[in-house]
């Protein structure tokens, strides 16, 4: 997985999943089309008019595959609709200094790479992305490197080896667990016997 893209900066801490996708848009029974409602309350006025000043709405951010956000991104509700909305919008990588646990898991399960960097690095990326919208960020999962060539920033990021392999090889965690059903039954019998 390699991504080279312009980025959308959202220098706001504690962006919760109610902002990423408000509850009134959780009424579908499928996973499709949530992107149009991503950050709905920040993107649109009450009457549905586009808020031009919001980063996602700026023409220079069009086509961005990277979102850079303040600390503790994705806190609050467990709704995976937040990850579906981000993925459907075309975002492949989210960078923050910390992610809420459930969101992080949801991101991985939808092929979104959540990258945690230290607060100083995050600030540098937020700054450059804000000042120079054309600035490209490069992410390489295999080498676990994040680069911003225009400011000569190279940062290593951590990722669980299991999650990395799942993303790189397209391994489906659910298939992995289904294939484990025999071992799970052995566990169940052991518990009953105790």
């Amino acid at each position: 997985m390699k991504v080279k893209s312009i980025a959308i900066p959202l220098p706001i801490d504690n962006i919760d999943t109610d902002q990423i996708i408000p509850a009134r848009f959780l009424k579908q029974v499928d996973k499709k089309g949530y992107g149009k409602n991503l950050f709905y309350n920040w993107r649109f006025n009450e009457d549905g008019d586009v808020k031009e000043s919001f980063e996602l709405n700026k023409p220079e951010r069009k086509g961005a595959e990277i979102l850079v956000a303040g600390n503790n991104f994705g806190c609050g509700s467990s709704r995976e609709h937040a990850a579906w909305a981000i993925a459907d919008y075309g975002i492949k990588v989210v960078i923050s200094s910390q992610f809420a646990d459930i969101f992080k898991g949801n991101a991985f399960n939808n092929g979104i790479l959540p990258i945690e960097v230290n607060p100083t690095v995050l600030q540098s990326i937020l700054d450059i992305a804000s000042k120079e919208p054309e600035c490209r960020i490069e992410v390489d999962l295999k080498s676990q490197k994040l680069k911003v060539p225009s400011i000569e920033l190279v940062s290593h990021f951590d990722i669980s080896p299991f999650k990395k392999e799942c993303l790189l090889k397209g391994v489906d965690e659910t298939e992995y667990l289904i294939n484990l059903r025999n071992e799970i039954e052995v566990y169940e019998r052991k518990v009953v016997a105790e």
């Binding site: 709704r79 898991g105 299991f162 965690e173 659910t174 059903r181």
Partner: peptide, 22 residues
Amino acid sequence: FGIGTSQVEQVLASQCLVLNRP
């Protein structure tokens, strides 16, 4: 603890989850 929908599917399919120990 709370889980996402992919994990709901995993529990339905296997009664298990792959988890990092907190």
